[in-house]
């Protein structure tokens, strides 16, 4: 099942030129860029693994794209997202987050229904 999260999630996947343009937009706004990846795209899993440290002083998108290439090489089957952080409020606020890499075969989100006390039911979702 196609995982949709963050910006542009209902568009077709961005190609590298489009990602570069987005990253350049982020940098032109004065935001920091970071890369994160995960093998568990469950919507409740908000903490993805960091790929290196956030890049605070880039001028040009190429710097982030180099890291993206490295990350894709190391984790071709992971979900990778690019995030933008704004620090004007004294702490880093996520301004943008979009998926830039997804595995060829995406997991299904499976719903598990369970009966509990009486006839009430609980639901759980997990990635399979």
């Amino acid at each position: 099942m196609r995982i949709t999260q963050g910006c542009f999630s209902f568009l077709p996947d961005l190609d590298d030129t489009q990602i570069t343009a987005q990253v350049q937009y982020i940098l032109d706004k004065g935001w920091a860029v970071s890369l994160e990846y995960t093998y568990d795209p469950h919507p409740r899993n908000t903490y993805w693994e960091m790929w290196g440290q956030p890049m605070f002083d880039l001028q040009d998108a190429k710097g982030a794209m180099i890291e993206l290439d490295e990350c894709r090489k190391a984790h071709p089957d992971a979900y990778i997202r690019i995030q933008a952080f704004d620090d004007t409020r004294g702490f880093e606020t996520v301004m943008m987050s979009f998926i830039v890499n997804r595995p060829p075969e995406e997991p299904r989100i499976h719903m598990q229904r369970t009966d509990v006390g009486g006839r009430s039911q609980t639901y759980a979702w997990d990635c399979r």
């Binding site: 001028q59 040009d60 190429k62 180099i66």
Partner: peptide, 11 residues
């Protein structure tokens, strides 16, 4: 070195 190079990209 890579950190520095990333900063210098485009310049």
């Amino acid at each position: 070195t890579k950190e520095v190079l990333k900063k210098a990209m485009g310049g």
